[in-house]
Design a protein around this nucleic acid. Structure first.
Length: 430
RNA sequence: GGAGGGGUGGCUGAGUGGUCGAAAGCACUGGUCUUGAAAACCAGCGAGGUUAGCGCCUCCCAGGGUUCGAAUCCCUGCCCCUCCGCCA
């Protein structure tokens, strides 16, 4: 959520800043809502004040044994008026809140202008694109016996997958490797978190109310949601908390499955496991003081890049343009890995600084010094990395002419010391 | 699943209809004392909204209700604890 005070003070400026996203901010609608809110709130509080005053008098009069009937009548008159005003105020408040919750974050100054991903700006590239002396296959053709999409269709439907044997193990190895690097070398605390979260958590990080259709929801005693990313449960660690300054920064790494309905992307990336309803991800989350958030952002980006470098995967870093920027982010840098089958770089990690946008929704605060008023924290997160896509990248970039896949050094200990993997069945052995 | 007991400030915990935003203790901050620290003593110390400010309003799990007035009474929901049952 944006700061309501700034919005009230300089709505034109904010509307201007939001236009970088290609968003037309409805100034008139906002101003009308806000002025109704102001008038109704003033009226309501004045009536409440009068009621409180008279009620106090009644208490006193009663003790003194005076006649309180006239006072009771006058205050009940106020009560009726108050009920009406309260109801109107509640309605406007709700409308205004819904309005405020649906405004995305303001893009940082360094975010380039642009409409969609074609306008993203490549910052740097790393590693060399592999050249093959044979026709490289995509990940589906590489593992005909161990990637079973038809079986997944039977069990669940399209956009799910069954991994078997060595492929399942390779995915697990990737996950373990990433968790170990982040905990042992980058100073993150590994956390295990719920995969089903409540509406308050989804609202705090920005998935609700606007993007309900992207989430899988579950009916329980109340509506619940399957996590679209570990960002949701982990960032909500600090929801409604007032931390002390020495608790910051907080660095968490979590491995979770992620669930996305992908309702808006029918027909996109249909082949293989690139875009799934369920996929594995290792997520990095930092809760930091506002003064440190840009440094932490760069640092976290570096942590994600380290994984790609250690796996010897060629990648590039791109800063997202205004039109491609996610709802809650002030700035996002995507890491894109080279996929030989597509002959282009594809997203494998997304690192964002949300500044105080999520923190305000979450009421996640900290006290700089004892006795001072609390300040909002800043939140930063990024994939470190998307495991399913790492699996694809590994298979495709390290494939050999005989259909096997080489295992990068960093992963060998996690794969029982082997240096390559056969992904076709031999002699009926799996 | 059955039976019972609870949800109050950073924490513990009093408060059962009228200056209660809330006793007390702990923690924390400032001061006195001390060579320094500890102890002791004194003072301060919840959050949000609104206002130029004084101030005013709201918040004692959440949502309704009763009342002139609700932390306090009633209803519903959520959550926690204890015992039994069941289970990985």
């Amino acid at each position: 959520m944006l700061d309501p005070r700034s919005l009230r003070r300089e709505p034109e400026l904010i509307a201007q800043a939001l236009s970088k996203r290609g968003l037309v901010f409805d100034l008139d609608a906002y101003k009308e809502l806000e002025s109704s809110r102001h008038d109704l709130q003033t009226e309501m509080e004045t009536l409440q004040h009068e009621r409180n005053e008279i009620s106090r008098t009644i208490g006193q009069a009663k003790q003194d044994g005076e006649d309180i009937e006239p006072l009771r009548l006058s205050v009940s008159e106020i009560g009726y008026r108050l009920d009406v005003v309260k109801q109107e105020f509640g309605k406007i408040r709700e409308e205004l809140d819904a309005f405020l919750l649906s405004i995305p974050n303001i893009p940082d100054e360094s975010v380039p202008e642009g409409a969609d991903e074609d306008d993203n700006l490549v910052l740097r590239q790393h590693g060399s694109i592999p050249e093959f002396n044979f026709e490289p296959k995509d990940h589906v053709d590489l593992a005909p016996d161990f990637l079973d999409l038809e079986l997944a269709v039977k069990i669940s439907g399209s956009r799910f997958s069954v991994l078997r044997g060595p492929l399942a193990k390779l995915q697990r190895a990737l996950t373990q490797f990433m968790l170990d690097v982040h905990t042992e070398q980058h100073g993150y605390e590994e956390v295990y978190v719920p995969y089903v979260v409540n509406a308050a958590s989804m609202t705090a990080t920005g998935q609700l109310p606007k993007f309900a259709h992207d989430a899988f929801h579950v009916e329980h005693t109340e509506p619940m949601y399957l996590v679209p990313t570990a960002e949701v449960p982990v960032t909500n660690f600090v929801r409604d908390e007032i931390l002390s300054a020495d608790e910051l920064p907080m660095r968490f790494v979590a491995h979770t499955p992620c669930f996305r309905s992908e309702a808006g992307s029918y027909g996109k990336d249909m082949r293989g496991i690139f875009r799934q309803h369920q996929f594995e991800k290792v997520e990095l989350v930092q809760i930091v003081s506002p003064d440190e958030s840009w440094a932490a952002f760069e640092e976290l980006l570096g942590h994600a890049e380290t994984i790609l470098k250690m796996l010897d995967l060629p990648y590039q870093a791109s800063v997202l343009c205004g039109g491609d920027l996610g709802f809650a982010a002030a700035k996002t840098i995507d890491l894109e890995v080279w996929l030989p089958s597509q002959r282009r770089y594809r997203e494998i990690s997304s690192v964002s600084n949300f500044l105080d946008f999520q923190a305000r929704r979450a009421q996640a605060r900290f006290r700089r010094k004892a006795g001072e008023r609390p300040d909002l924290v800043h939140t930063i997160n990024g994939s470190g990395l998307a495991v399913g896509r790492s699996l694809i990248a590994l298979m495709e970039n390290f494939q050999n002419g005989d259909g096997s896949v080489s295992i990068p050094d960093a992963l060998r200990d996690y794969m029982g010391g082997i240096d390559s993997l056969k992904l076709t069945e031999i002699d009926g052995q799996k």
